[in-house]
Design a protein around this nucleic acid. Structure first.
Lengths: 162, 162
DNA sequence: CTTGCTGCAAAAGTTTTGCACACGT
DNA sequence: ACGTGTGCAAAACTTTTGCAGCAAG
């Protein structure tokens, strides 16, 4: 069973500060730092790439870190407000999220066969984004470039299919 | 009531052939060309930009072109198979579609305030896509570049908000 | 006529919400 | 102690599906 993500290595030291960032955010909003929120943040920080709410719940339950589905969704919203994670649009049926440690995610390469998602760095996009926004009088906020294709592994493993 | 799309002008003459394309596709698949399918294709062809299944249904009902929601979804699927429309991922909660008359849609500029979607042409993307796919051993199929931002109109109309 | 199509309503899948109780601050 | 948070289950919302009658080829 192949895993669903690849990518960009995150250094461990970032994990501790992130917790502080979240606590700070919560305090500023008059919200509380609960064990559930701590556990969710923890699980989110352990994700190297793109993840779904449901997968997070499963994983947490497997590790007997008890949380309800409702709390996952509620907390993911706070984490987005706190700019700790970003929503990534890859599938119109389900929300995908990703850590946004300082930098915004840029590009994705999605295999249409295996559904594997590879993050790719495409430096040109920033300049393109600026240009397009200027042309249309927009104030840019973020962007996303997704390439759909078929990976070599997938096309090898299903030669005569379809 | 601002409209939701802008863009690329479609010439009328394309509308007739599209119907033939769809009939051909249906016949090839042993499927039938029904009045409902004709009406849906018709409504789809009248869309200048991105649209949602539900909006299509509403519009059709307003014009008393009776169709059921189920038939809309079933037909949109066929239209995608026939390569007449393409799914566009812009919102993780709802599917968005767009006519794909020969050419693939390339870029979108989405206003986070008004939710207006502007299609933009970004010629560089093809080359970038090729390069990224080559680097990762992928066979490219399609791509999408979405820029999120705030349009001038929106930022003018809500100066002191938030 | 045969086979696929439509509409309805119910089902399915993801996300949200109301409520009663529990817990950070 | 107060005001949020949590879990549960039900609600919402989009999309899919089963079924009985209907229509295209």
């Amino acid at each position: 069973m192949p895993n669903t993500t690849t990518a960009t290595s995150h250094d461990e030291p970032l994990i501790l500060p992130m917790c502080a960032v979240f606590r700070r955010f919560l305090k500023d909003q008059g919200l509380k730092f609960t064990p559930e929120r701590a556990r969710i943040l923890d699980s989110v920080l352990s994700k190297p790439g793109v993840f779904e709410a449901d997968a997070l719940l499963d994983e947490m339950r497997r590790d007997s870190r008890r949380v309800s589905r409702a709390t996952i969704y509620r907390t993911l919203k706070h984490l987005m407000e706190a700019k700790i994670i970003t929503e990534v649009l890859i599938d119109s049926k389900q929300s995908h999220y990703q850590l946004s440690i300082g930098r915004e995610p840029k590009g994705y390469l999605v295999c249409m066969e295996t559904h594997k998602i590879i993050e790719v760095d495409v430096p040109e996009l920033d300049a393109i984004r600026e240009r397009v926004c200027r042309q249309h009088g927009f104030e840019p906020a973020s962007h996303r470039f997704v390439i759909y294709g078929v990976s070599q592994d997938a096309s090898e493993n299903s030669e005569g299919t379809d």
